[in-house]
Simulated assay, not measured.
Amino acid sequence: MNSKFLGTGVALVTPFKKDLSVDYDALKNIVNFNIENGTDYLVISGTTAESVTITKQEKKAITAAIIEVNGGRVPLVLGIGGSNTSAVIEEIRATDLSNIDAILSVSPYYTKPTQEGIYQHFKAISGACPIDIILYNVPGRTSKNVEPETTIRLAKDFKNIVGVKEAGNNISNYLQLLKNKPEDFLVISGDDDLALGVVLAGGAGVISVIGQAFPRAFSDMIRLGLKGDAKAAYKLHFKLMDVIDYIFEENNPAGIKAVFQALKLCDDTVRLPLVPASDGLQKKINQFVADFN
């Protein structure tokens, strides 16, 4: 099993200043905060990074900044995906992947392809990608579930497809994947609320949103889960349950940025069409952060 992606990965936010420019100082602080507190790997330009409102030039600069501050300390995963297969392949070929350990590639959205279309999409990407690929299934955003059978077929057919970030909030999907996957294939939770249960059932870990705000507690929870220490792991899970609900109450990443604002790690600014967390939600988050120990 690829140990690079065992444990807790976090889907980093892109901090913005009030003028909507990228706040690179805050980004570097968040990266250091995570590495120093036990996060196992970092995911760049995922959904939580507001990747759909980031320009190509910004994505390149953000990636370079994270590579620099990371300094080779933890593995890095870069989001490269989309609904236009040829454009995804073009981006892979145009990107310097020498400091990147894998790409995270979301299944096609909006176009609603069949399972065969999804398979052919990732087959083409596999043939073009010189590094490992983690599939990303998030049907709540793509409107199309990648069925477990399709994921398993891809896992068996292509050696560089090493795992899936499964974010369908569907226990049945997880269990089918864990039951039928090749031995070395990684089933990674993309659902913070289900992550511990998935790990205890045989999952490889999580790519988390809330983990980047509470990296010590969250990564300890996942490590305990990987060791099979359910009782100790659930103590940490119960401490984090409320804030996991809070950050997804309105939208992601407005919720996690509200947490970071309470922690004084970055501003809560998001780019339209997202808007910051409401005053009521920010108040609940502020109280949680003040009480957390």
Rank of each mutant, 00 (worst) to 15 (best):
L265E: 04
I247S: 03
D242R: 06
F214G: 08
A230M: 13
L224R: 07
K239T: 01
A233M: 05
P215M: 15
V259I: 14
I244N: 15
S219V: 01
S219N: 11
I210S: 15
I210V: 15
Y246E: 09
I210M: 14
F248G: 12
M221N: 01
K235L: 15
R216E: 15
F214R: 00
A232N: 13
K227N: 08
D245Q: 13
G202N: 11
A213H: 02
G211W: 03
A232W: 07
A258G: 11
I247T: 02
A217M: 02
A258C: 11
G202F: 14
D229H: 09
I207N: 05
A258F: 12
F218M: 07
V206Q: 05
A217H: 08
A217W: 04
D229P: 02
E249G: 12
L200W: 08
F238G: 00
G228M: 10
G225C: 12
A232P: 04
D242F: 07
I244W: 09
L200C: 08
G211F: 04
Q261G: 01
Q261M: 10
K227V: 01
F214I: 13
G255H: 04
L265T: 08
A233S: 03
A232K: 15
F260D: 04
E250V: 11
G203N: 00
F248H: 12
D242E: 12
K227T: 04
G203S: 07
N252F: 14
D268L: 08
D267L: 14
Y246A: 02
A262E: 01
G255A: 06
D220V: 12
G228T: 00
F248Y: 15
Q212L: 08
G225T: 04
D267M: 10
C266L: 05
E249P: 08
V243M: 02
A262V: 01
D268G: 05
R216P: 04
L236T: 11
L265S: 02
I222S: 10
I256L: 11
R216V: 12
D245V: 11
G228F: 03
D220W: 06
A213E: 03
